[in-house]
Protein backbone atom coordinates (compact mmCIF):
# COMPACT_ATOMS: atom_id res chain seq x y z
CA UNK A 1 0.00 0.00 0.00
CA UNK A 2 1.32 3.42 -0.97
CA UNK A 3 2.07 5.92 1.78
CA UNK A 4 0.20 9.21 2.23
CA UNK A 5 3.20 11.36 1.24
CA UNK A 6 3.65 9.32 -1.97
CA UNK A 7 -0.01 9.76 -2.87
CA UNK A 8 0.17 13.46 -2.01
CA UNK A 9 3.18 13.84 -4.30
CA UNK A 10 1.28 12.22 -7.17
CA UNK A 11 -1.77 14.35 -6.41
CA UNK A 12 0.41 17.47 -6.49
CA UNK A 13 1.38 16.47 -10.02
CA UNK A 14 -2.29 16.32 -10.97
CA UNK A 15 -3.20 12.68 -10.30
CA UNK A 16 -6.89 12.64 -9.38
CA UNK A 17 -6.76 8.91 -8.67
CA UNK A 18 -4.07 9.43 -6.02
CA UNK A 19 -6.07 12.20 -4.42
CA UNK A 20 -9.25 10.12 -4.47
CA UNK A 21 -7.36 7.46 -2.51
CA UNK A 22 -6.28 10.08 0.05
CA UNK A 23 -9.87 11.27 0.39
CA UNK A 24 -11.03 7.66 0.86
CA UNK A 25 -8.43 7.09 3.58
CA UNK A 26 -9.08 10.26 5.57
CA UNK A 27 -12.73 11.04 4.95
CA UNK A 28 -13.98 9.27 8.08
CA UNK A 29 -11.59 11.17 10.35
CA UNK A 30 -12.29 14.56 8.76
CA UNK A 31 -16.05 14.05 8.55
CA UNK A 32 -16.15 12.83 12.12
CA UNK A 33 -14.13 15.82 13.25
CA UNK A 34 -16.28 18.33 11.35
CA UNK A 35 -19.51 16.70 12.53
CA UNK A 36 -18.35 16.85 16.15
CA UNK A 37 -17.17 20.42 15.89
CA UNK A 38 -20.40 21.63 14.30
CA UNK A 39 -22.69 19.26 16.18
CA UNK A 40 -24.47 18.53 12.91
CA UNK A 41 -24.07 15.80 10.30
CA UNK A 42 -25.00 17.94 7.29
CA UNK A 43 -22.96 21.01 8.31
CA UNK A 44 -20.08 18.73 9.22
CA UNK A 45 -20.11 17.00 5.84
CA UNK A 46 -20.27 20.38 4.08
CA UNK A 47 -17.18 21.55 5.95
CA UNK A 48 -15.42 18.23 5.30
CA UNK A 49 -16.14 18.55 1.58
CA UNK A 50 -14.81 22.13 1.49
CA UNK A 51 -11.78 20.90 3.43
CA UNK A 52 -10.90 18.32 0.79
CA UNK A 53 -11.49 20.79 -2.05
CA UNK A 54 -9.16 23.28 -0.35
CA UNK A 55 -6.61 20.55 0.33
CA UNK A 56 -6.59 19.65 -3.39
CA UNK A 57 -5.72 23.26 -4.21
CA UNK A 58 -3.04 23.36 -1.52
CA UNK A 59 -1.65 19.85 -1.96
CA UNK A 60 1.60 21.25 -3.32
CA UNK A 61 2.25 22.91 0.05
CA UNK A 62 2.10 19.58 1.93
CA UNK A 63 5.70 18.96 2.85
CA UNK A 64 5.46 15.53 4.46
CA UNK A 65 4.73 14.72 8.08
CA UNK A 66 1.38 13.40 9.27
CA UNK A 67 -1.16 13.87 6.51
CA UNK A 68 -4.03 13.54 8.99
CA UNK A 69 -2.68 16.46 11.04
CA UNK A 70 -2.33 18.54 7.86
CA UNK A 71 -5.85 17.83 6.65
CA UNK A 72 -7.34 18.28 10.15
CA UNK A 73 -5.67 21.70 10.38
CA UNK A 74 -7.38 22.72 7.13
CA UNK A 75 -10.65 21.35 8.49
CA UNK A 76 -10.24 23.37 11.68
CA UNK A 77 -9.68 26.58 9.66
CA UNK A 78 -12.70 25.90 7.49
CA UNK A 79 -14.77 25.34 10.60
CA UNK A 80 -13.61 28.68 12.03
CA UNK A 81 -14.41 30.41 8.75
CA UNK A 82 -17.90 28.93 8.73
CA UNK A 83 -18.38 30.14 12.29
CA UNK A 84 -17.16 33.62 11.44
CA UNK A 85 -19.80 33.79 8.73
CA UNK A 86 -22.32 33.14 11.48
CA UNK A 87 -20.50 35.68 13.63
CA UNK A 88 -20.15 33.22 16.51
CA UNK A 89 -16.92 33.64 18.44
CA UNK A 90 -15.48 30.62 20.23
CA UNK A 91 -15.40 31.17 23.93
CA UNK A 92 -12.34 29.63 25.52
CA UNK A 93 -13.46 30.18 29.06
CA UNK A 94 -13.86 26.91 30.94
CA UNK A 95 -17.12 28.14 32.37
CA UNK A 96 -18.48 29.16 28.97
CA UNK A 97 -21.84 27.96 27.84
CA UNK A 98 -22.03 25.44 25.02
CA UNK A 99 -22.73 27.19 21.74
CA UNK A 100 -24.70 25.08 19.28
CA UNK A 101 -23.82 25.31 15.58
CA UNK A 102 -27.00 25.66 13.51
CA UNK A 103 -28.60 22.49 14.79
CA UNK A 104 -31.76 21.43 13.06
CA UNK A 105 -34.29 18.87 14.18
CA UNK A 106 -33.46 16.56 11.29
CA UNK A 107 -29.80 16.56 12.34
CA UNK A 108 -30.68 15.81 15.91
CA UNK A 109 -32.60 12.69 14.93
CA UNK A 110 -29.36 11.08 13.76
CA UNK A 111 -27.31 12.34 16.68
CA UNK A 112 -28.84 10.32 19.46
CA UNK A 113 -25.78 8.23 20.23
CA UNK A 114 -24.47 8.47 23.77
CA UNK A 115 -20.99 9.46 22.69
CA UNK A 116 -22.19 12.34 20.55
CA UNK A 117 -24.58 13.55 23.21
CA UNK A 118 -21.90 13.37 25.87
CA UNK A 119 -19.53 15.34 23.65
CA UNK A 120 -22.10 18.06 23.07
CA UNK A 121 -22.34 18.58 26.84
CA UNK A 122 -18.70 19.61 27.15
CA UNK A 123 -17.64 23.25 27.05
CA UNK A 124 -16.70 24.59 23.63
CA UNK A 125 -12.94 24.53 24.24
CA UNK A 126 -13.06 21.03 25.74
CA UNK A 127 -15.13 19.76 22.82
CA UNK A 128 -12.64 21.18 20.34
CA UNK A 129 -9.64 19.67 22.11
CA UNK A 130 -11.30 16.29 22.68
CA UNK A 131 -12.43 16.22 19.03
CA UNK A 132 -8.95 16.99 17.73
CA UNK A 133 -6.89 14.86 20.10
CA UNK A 134 -9.14 12.00 21.20
CA UNK A 135 -11.44 11.55 18.19
CA UNK A 136 -9.24 12.69 15.28
CA UNK A 137 -6.09 11.27 16.87
CA UNK A 138 -3.90 14.36 16.69
CA UNK A 139 -1.12 14.70 19.25
CA UNK A 140 -1.41 17.56 21.73
CA UNK A 141 1.37 19.36 19.88
CA UNK A 142 -0.39 18.93 16.50
CA UNK A 143 -3.65 20.20 18.00
CA UNK A 144 -1.84 23.18 19.53
CA UNK A 145 -0.25 23.95 16.15
CA UNK A 146 -3.58 23.61 14.35
CA UNK A 147 -5.56 25.80 16.72
CA UNK A 148 -2.81 28.21 17.66
CA UNK A 149 -3.62 27.64 21.33
CA UNK A 150 -0.82 27.11 23.88
CA UNK A 151 0.20 23.47 24.37
CA UNK A 152 -0.59 23.60 28.10
CA UNK A 153 -4.09 24.90 27.39
CA UNK A 154 -4.75 22.08 24.93
CA UNK A 155 -3.50 19.46 27.40
CA UNK A 156 -5.62 20.90 30.17
CA UNK A 157 -8.77 20.98 28.00
CA UNK A 158 -8.16 17.41 26.85
CA UNK A 159 -7.69 16.13 30.40
CA UNK A 160 -10.80 17.87 31.72
CA UNK A 161 -12.79 17.03 28.62
CA UNK A 162 -11.90 13.34 28.82
CA UNK A 163 -12.86 13.25 32.51
CA UNK A 164 -16.17 14.97 31.82
CA UNK A 165 -16.83 12.67 28.85
CA UNK A 166 -16.21 9.56 30.96
CA UNK A 167 -18.55 10.84 33.65
CA UNK A 168 -21.24 11.59 31.07
CA UNK A 169 -20.90 8.13 29.52
CA UNK A 170 -20.95 6.44 32.91
CA UNK A 171 -24.07 8.30 34.01
CA UNK A 172 -25.87 7.53 30.73
CA UNK A 173 -25.02 3.83 31.13
CA UNK A 174 -26.34 3.82 34.71
CA UNK A 175 -29.53 5.53 33.57
Amino acid sequence: MRSDPDLAEDAAQGSEAAYAELVRRHQARVRGMARRLTGSASDGDDIAQITFLKAWQKIGTYTGGTFSAWICTICWREYLQARRKQKIEIEFDETAEIVPFMRTQSDEVGDQMDLTNALQKLTEAQRVCVTLCVAAGLSHREAADATGWPLGTVKSHVTRGVDALRKQLASSQVA
Binding site: V23, A28, G32, A135
Partner: peptide, 18 residues
Amino acid sequence: FTAEDRKLDPAPFVQDVM
Protein backbone atom coordinates in the same frame (compact mmCIF):
# COMPACT_ATOMS: atom_id res chain seq x y z
CA PHE B 1 -14.95 7.52 18.11
CA THR B 2 -13.16 5.53 15.42
CA ALA B 3 -15.89 2.89 15.46
CA GLU B 4 -18.48 5.64 15.03
CA ASP B 5 -16.56 7.17 12.10
CA ARG B 6 -16.14 3.80 10.38
CA LYS B 7 -19.92 3.61 9.97
CA LEU B 8 -19.79 6.56 7.56
CA ASP B 9 -20.16 5.43 3.95
CA PRO B 10 -17.11 6.72 2.05
CA ALA B 11 -18.30 6.17 -1.56
CA PRO B 12 -20.85 9.03 -1.95
CA PHE B 13 -18.59 11.46 -0.10
CA VAL B 14 -15.52 10.64 -2.20
CA GLN B 15 -17.67 10.90 -5.34
CA ASP B 16 -18.95 14.35 -4.26
CA VAL B 17 -15.45 15.64 -3.51
CA MET B 18 -13.94 14.34 -6.75
